[in-house]
Structures are given as structure tokens and as C-alpha cells.
Nucleic acid binder design. Structure first.
Lengths: 337, 337
DNA sequence: TTGTAAGCGTTATCAT
DNA sequence: ATGATAACGCTTACAA
């Protein structure tokens, strides 16, 4: 008995219409060069006539492969990951691949749920952000037959493919940039959002350079949940200090730094004279602030493209794909530091 | 002969491990209340032991339904659509649905390709941006058995579900806002990116109100491809006019308006005295500029939530789901106008 | 270059 | 409450 619930034509309908077997029509889509020109032409016509759209669930089931790439990002709407997503989505589309997306809000549990659901699709690849996951996620990706690609971070010790940069190096470079400009009392403002382990890596790099220069490394923890408010809070609190008033501040990200710049505007401070401000991320607003924000630009688009490259080469079953792609960040010196 | 290409456990493996049939295990996932408590418990243990992940392609094939919602947006990384995507993705995740995403760059052909690919997944719903599509896309969605939801626009004449707002009304409201503030020579700066038909709707609303007030409606077409540069170009050109120098400018979007504000900063103009600036979109940087940008906030998150609501009710086969959800935009008066 | 047969892992249907 | 069986629409393996 037929269980067809849609009127959608199938491969069999196309095959019947042009008097060929289903497998030939199937080949027409997957390996066109193996189908004779006149057969191709007849198939093309039939496909058009019926407005045939291949059922990808059926294809995925039969081949145990799919043309989707699944990615989990902390958030979609933020200025951080969007450029990478765009590059990823565009690059995948060029190769006939599609993007399945979920956001984790820096919650490893949410990431785990997303990974679990995604693996059910047999994705061509599973792309994650950062290298910190729950134990269950680790188990899932270790047992997965799909390739896993971690982004925004690097860790030579790990098994998955990695496309990223060194957060520690970002911290080092920012500290050196400020030291080179003569600052000595340099503070680091942490992200009030917990779970941003990469930001802690950046602080580690910062601290490393400070200590090598014989200077104290210290961080400030704002309590405000909203990043802009947290940045403002940090600025107010630190400039109010009688002793050890900082000359420069590195913020865990541009949102925090932006909050500080706006707070400085309101208080009519002049930056960077009163205090130099340095961020991370080079968000879209960084060059629009007054003063414009000095920050570090992560290789967002480049990471997206590198992921596409890996996926495409995996699809083609190429050999010798590099397991680790290290990309460089760029210090963008503007007015605020 | 077995064609299994992965070691991944299947429903049959779980069933074998706990001595039940596959269908019972299948029910455990889909209709838990129909499985006896002790059976449930045994299944739960087996699932955990094997780290079982359901094959969604198989499920989708068998049921002709899937737990994915496919969406095509003009772009992912822009400040415009990201908040809606975030709300959509989050809302879907709460209901165990996933988001398949593609960007069209305002190209109807790219949209068509994406729609074609997406329909192959039998998505629970297909979500599009705007109501302008190629003829082939129209044919595809007309013939699709999946529900189609159009967003960011409204058109009573169309068949798909719609969740949006009136761009024409946005144009009207902006013009009235500026008229109320005493401006009379008000210009409209078009988007240099072609294909943004919604922006032309906003201009139509603008023109309507201007003409009703007995004032001329006119638009300026910048040529620079980059929106920020286009905005700057428009400001320079229009303020250089000897006669009919505008008192206020409505920009097709906040990017253009931002370009104008930064250009004004460089020229040390004082806004809104020299010229009032009004945007559209309420992008993340709008309140961070100096002066902060007056603009219209579209109901981005609300649209995402409304789409989720429709999808969930469709999944539950509810009756009487509204085919058109009209949401309101909000004029956000700040410093620039 | 094309075709046949079997199977991918799940769910709908019907039966008990 | 549970199960047997037959699809779902496609691709693999092998054959011709």
C-alpha cells in the first residue's frame, strides 16, 4: 500500500516519463558525465516538466551522507560570529552545501543538545566554536563518523580539525601594543558573561607579557550583566581609584570597550589621554565610535573560508588535509589607544 | 548484504539490547506517554548505553516530515536580519526544531537556488524574506506541500503566511516625524544596492506624506557601492546644493545614515542643526554614534517569535492560524533628528 | 552506458 | 501497550 503523503514527483516519476530507469536519473544528478548526452537531455526535460526536487532525506539515508554542514555558534546575532557565518554560508552554497545552524549562548549544555540533534542528520561536517565542550559532547564527537571542525581556537592536543588563532597571542600582542606606547599601568577588564573561556586565554597572554616586563598583571571583574554597562562600570570604578589609576585598559571584547568609550564621552574625558582603551573583535561599530576603537581583528571571514576548504576537500576524499589551520589576528590601531 | 557504513547504533540495536521491537523504541521518542513506564526505563538505559542518536534522514523519509525549518535571508552578517535569526533559532530550538539557513544577497536567483535545495529536505516550514521572488520560486512554493512564511513584508494578496510590517507605513512615519519637527525640505537617500525593493516601498510612503503636505518628494541616488560611502556621498552632494539645500534627510537604512553622520563629524557640522539625519533599522551602532541616530526599529525579534509560533502551531495541526501577522515598527527619536 | 536488486533506518498501518 | 510488516525515495553493489 502506498504511504505517499505528498504529490511531489519522485525519481521514479521522472524515470517513467522519459522511459529510463531510476538509477540513470539518479546518476544524471550525481555523475552527469556518466550519462549519455541524449539521455541527459531527455531527463533534463522531464525534470523541468515535473518540477522535480530530489528528496534529500531519501538520498541521505541511502548514501549515509548529506550535503549539510552543521555549525554551533555561541550566538548568531552578535557582531562576532556573523561575519564568519556569512563567509561559511556563502562558501558552502558555492559547492552545493547547506548550513544547519544553532546557537549555544556560551552554554556547553546547549551546545551538547545541538550537537546531538545535528549528528542525526549525518552532516558532511560538524563545525563547533572553541575547544571547550561537555564530556558528553566529547564522547559524541569522538564516536561520530562525521568530521568535526573546531573554530576560533587552536589546541595541538586535540583530535578534531581546527581552524583558528591563538587567543593567548592576541593577549600578548595587545599588551605589547600598549607597552610600546609607553603605558605601564595596564589593566584587563574581564567579560561579565561567564563561560567565555577564550577571553580568559587572552588574559593569560596579557599577563604573560606584563610579567615579562616586570609589571603586575591584574584583571577587573565587572558585575553588570549587559556588556556595555559592564564596560562603563569598569571605567568608572577604575578611574575612581586613588592609587594605581590605570593608564590603559584592555577589554575582553569590543562591546565592553564600547561601553567604556560611551561612558567616557558622557564624562567628557579625553581618550586616550585620560586612559587608553583597547578591545577585541573589531566589531562593526569599532571605527564609528568617537574616538574610534583600537582593537584586534580576528580572521573571521578567513576562518569561514578555511572551514569551507576543509569540508570541500573532505567531500572529495582528498588526502593530506591539514588538521590545523592557524590564522593571524591583526592589531588595528585607531584613536582610542 | 549489509551496506552499513557507520558504526552508529540504530533503533534496531537499541531494541535488541532491551528486548523490544523497534517500533516501541521509536514510540518512546515520539509518543512517550504511549510506552509503559518500565519499558521506557529500559529503553532509556539502552539509549544511554549505546549513545544512540536517531537518524533524522531515515525518520524524515518515513514520515515525510522533518524537524527543520529552512530560511532564506538576504544576508546573515548584516545588523538587519541577525536579531530575527537569533530569535527564530532560539525559539525553534525550544521546540526541538532546527534552522537551515541560506543567504541570497538580495538576489532573487540566489533565493531560488536556496528554495529549490531546501524543499528537498521536506522542511516543516520554509521562511522567506520579503514577498518578491522569481517566477520559478513562485511556482516552487505554490506547488510545495510545505507551508511557506514570508517575513519583513505584508501583502494581503498573497497566499503564503506572512509575518511583517508595512514598509510604506515606515516611510510615512519617518516623514511625519520630520515634518512635526518643523522640517520642510526633506530628501530621501536611496540604497545604492539594487534589488532592495522594500526600501522603495518606504520611499513610496515618504512621498505620499510629503505630497499630502503639499511638499515635493524627491530622492537622491548615490553611486558608491559601499553603503557608508554612499551615505557620505549623499550628504556631501546635497549640502553642496546652492538652492533647495535639504533641512532633513531620510536614509534608506542605518548604514547609509551612519556614513552621513561620520562624514558630518569630519566636516565638523553640527547635527541636527545643519541637517537632520534619519535612518532605518536601528542597527546596533545607532545609539553609539555621535550624535546618536534617530531611526525606525523594525520588530525583528518579534517577527522571529511570530514565525516560531506559526510553525509550532502548524506542527500541532492547529486550526485557525492567522495567515497574516502585522507587527508595528517604532520610531526611535535620538539626537540626529 | 545502462539496468537489477537490495538495502539504508525509520515510521505508518493494521493487528493482537 | 506492543508488535509484524511494508513502505518512504533514494543510492550502492554488481551485472550486462
Amino acid at each position: 500500500m502506498s504511504r505517499r503523503r505528498t504529490e511531489r514527483p519522485t525519481l521514479a516519476d521522472v524515470a517513467a516519463l522519459c522511459g529510463m530507469s531510476t538509477i540513470t536519473v539518479s546518476r544524471y544528478f550525481r555523475e552527469p558525465q556518466r550519462v549519455a548526452p541524449d539521455a541527459s537531455e531527455r531527463i533534463r526535460t522531464a525534470v523541468e516538466r515535473l518540477n522535480y526536487v530530489p528528496n534529500l532525506a531519501a538520498g541521505g539515508l541511502a548514501s549515509a551522507r548529506s550535503r549539510v554542514v552543521a555549525m554551533v555558534v555561541p550566538n548568531i546575532s552578535g557582531p562576532i560570529f556573523a561575519p564568519m557565518l556569512q563567509a561559511l554560508s556563502d562558501g558552502l552554497a558555492e559547492h552545493g552545501l547547506q548550513l544547519l545552524l544553532a546557537s549555544s549562548y556560551f552554554s556547553m549544555d546547549a551546545e551538547e543538545r545541538a550537537v546531538r540533534a545535528f549528528l542525526g542528520w549525518n552532516p558532511a561536517a560538524l563545525v563547533l566554536t572553541s575547544r571547550f565542550h561537555t564530556a558528553a559532547t566529547e564522547r559524541l564527537i569522538a564516536g561520530a563518523s562525521q568530521p568535526v571542525i573546531e573554530t576560533w581556537d587552536l589546541d595541538p592536543g586535540r583530535a578534531p580539525y581546527q581552524v583558528g588563532f591563538s587567543h593567548r597571542q592576541v593577549g600578548r600582542d595587545a599588551a605589547r601594543y600598549l607597552l610600546d606606547r609607553g603605558h605601564r599601568r595596564i589593566g584587563f577588564v574581564h567579560n561579565s558573561a561567564a563561560g567565555d573561556l577564550s577571553a580568559q586565554e587572552r588574559f593569560a597572554g596579557h599577563a604573560e607579557v606584563m610579567q615579562a616586563a616586570g609589571l603586575p598583571a591584574w584583571g577587573y571583574n565587572p558585575t553588570a550583566a549587559d556588556p556595555m554597562q559592564a564596560g562603563a562600570q569598569a571605567l568608572e570604578a577604575l578611574l575612581a581609584r586613588k592609587r594605581q589609576r590605570p593608564e590603559a585598559l584592555v577589554f575582553a571584547n569590543d562591546n565592553l570597550a564600547c561601553g567604556a568609550i560611551l561612558a567616557a564621552q558622557r564624562r567628557s574625558l579625553s581618550l586616550p589621554q585620560d586612559v587608553a582603551i583597547f578591545g577585541f573583535g573589531d566589531y562593526a561599530f569599532a571605527d564609528k565610535l568617537l574616538p574610534s576603537l583600537s582593537t584586534t581583528r580576528p580572521p573571521a571571514r578567513e576562518m569561514g573560508q578555511a572551514v569551507v576548504d576543509i569540508v570541500v576537500r573532505l567531500q572529495a576524499a582528498e588526502e593530506g588535509i591539514a588538521r590545523r589551520v592557524e590564522l593571524a589576528c591583526e592589531v588595528v590601531g585607531r584613536e582610542s589607544a
